[in-house]
């Protein structure tokens, strides 16, 4: 009923408000960084910034996969469990420990990595198939996977951690490339590829169309079930990769790894401005959202603030981001 405001008529304050909504998260990140720079002498050091990036990388990679899913109006609650499953399965192929119960190991690292990613993709494919073929709500399908993947992890590993990973396997979590830690390099590469896929490929256009209006996408000749399936495969594959990064970083694959990781990933996506209603959002926003969470955790640790505050602040941030999203919708 209400006519939208003509574009040309925006006054300066309207314009400032519009920019605030568009770049709010980036501004928040910069403000927090400036504050921390003055509050703690070590914050703005190269090593600490690399720490922040390293600590953000796993959540960031999961959040990038989550962005694809949320853009199609879905959600993937299973990523935390898939992290554990892929980590344990892949690590069991790259250890000399007999705990793993895999005869003939350790296998070449490439095999272990490949299997880990495939396990993640398979979990995603199952969720995606259930969602797209049987129209089961994503919340339910991936909630099922959250439980099933955790159970499979415990079954596979017999509840024990998989220790003594080979040095080649741990390379991906611990090595540096030109002084940059490998998880950060992986995070950056995945971000660039995801950015390209979403902004410049046909598949990316399909993702936005399916999320924006599945009926219109279907009528336009786009196979929505194929797109829905693929986004869960992407999310699962990236969760699998994150599981291996985590195992490589901590030195062994734990069955309890990744518990509640899905919540941080969703938080990063939402803070980054992607609409849970689908069709709107950018992977750059997600990365900034993940960095904001990472920087705050790091800053509060540096300043010796009790960790429970971090949870309170993160909660407030998520709600604030969605309020911003709503304001954006009302304007449209």
């Amino acid at each position: 009923m209400i006519q939208s405001k003509p574009v040309a008529s925006r006054s300066a304050s309207d314009l400032a408000a519009a920019y605030g909504r568009k770049y709010g998260i980036l501004i928040a990140l910069i403000v927090v960084c400036v504050f921390l720079t003055f509050a703690n002498e070590y914050f703005l050091t190269g090593r600490n910034l690399l720490n922040v990036l390293r600590q953000t990388s796993i959540n960031g990679i999961l959040a990038i996969g989550m962005t694809f899913v949320i853009l199609t109006r879905g959600i993937d609650l299973s990523v935390g469990s898939v992290v554990a499953l892929a980590g344990v399965v892949s690590a069991s192929l790259a250890t000399s420990s007999v705990n793993a119960m895999v005869p003939g190991g350790p296998y070449p690292t490439v095999v272990a990595f490949g299997v880990g990613i495939l396990v993640g993709m398979a979990c995603g494919a199952i969720s995606g198939w259930v969602v797209s073929r049987f129209n089961v709500p994503a919340f339910v399908a991936t909630l099922g996977m959250l439980s099933a993947a955790r159970g499979m992890t415990l079954l596979y590993a017999g509840g024990k951690p998989v220790p003594e990973l080979t040095d080649e396997y741990r390379w991906i979590g611990t090595a540096d490339v030109l002084g940059i830690p490998m998880p950060v390099v992986a995070f950056a590469v995945i971000f660039l590829v995801a950015f390209w896929v979403l902004s410049a490929t046909r598949f990316g256009r399909h993702v936005y169309a399916v999320g924006g209006n599945p009926h219109a996408a279907k009528v336009s000749g786009i196979s929505i079930s194929r797109i829905r399936l693929l986004v869960y495969v992407i999310s699962g594959g990236l969760a699998g990769f994150s599981g291996m990064l985590l195992a490589a970083r901590t030195g062994s694959a734990l069955t309890q790894a990744g518990i509640a990781y899905e919540l941080d990933a969703i938080a990063a996506v939402v803070i980054g401005g992607t609409s849970l209603g689908g069709g709107i959002g950018k992977v750059t926003g997600t990365v900034i959202g993940a960095l904001l969470i990472g920087v705050m955790n790091n800053g509060l640790d540096l300043m010796g603030v009790e960790s429970y505050y971090q949870q309170v602040i993160k909660g407030a941030l998520i709600v604030a981001a969605v309020m911003l999203d709503q304001a954006r919708h009302r304007e449209a």
Partner: peptide
């Protein structure tokens, strides 16, 4: 309901049914 993606821009909507013809391989020709 089924004609437009309201939150998307004019260009995305106009191109939506011709994405194959407007791309080279996987990438879109912007």
């Amino acid at each position: 309901g089924s004609g437009l993606v309201l939150a998307a821009d004019v260009r995305a909507n106009v191109c939506m049914a011709s994405l194959g013809a407007l791309s080279m391989g996987l990438a879109m020709n912007t």
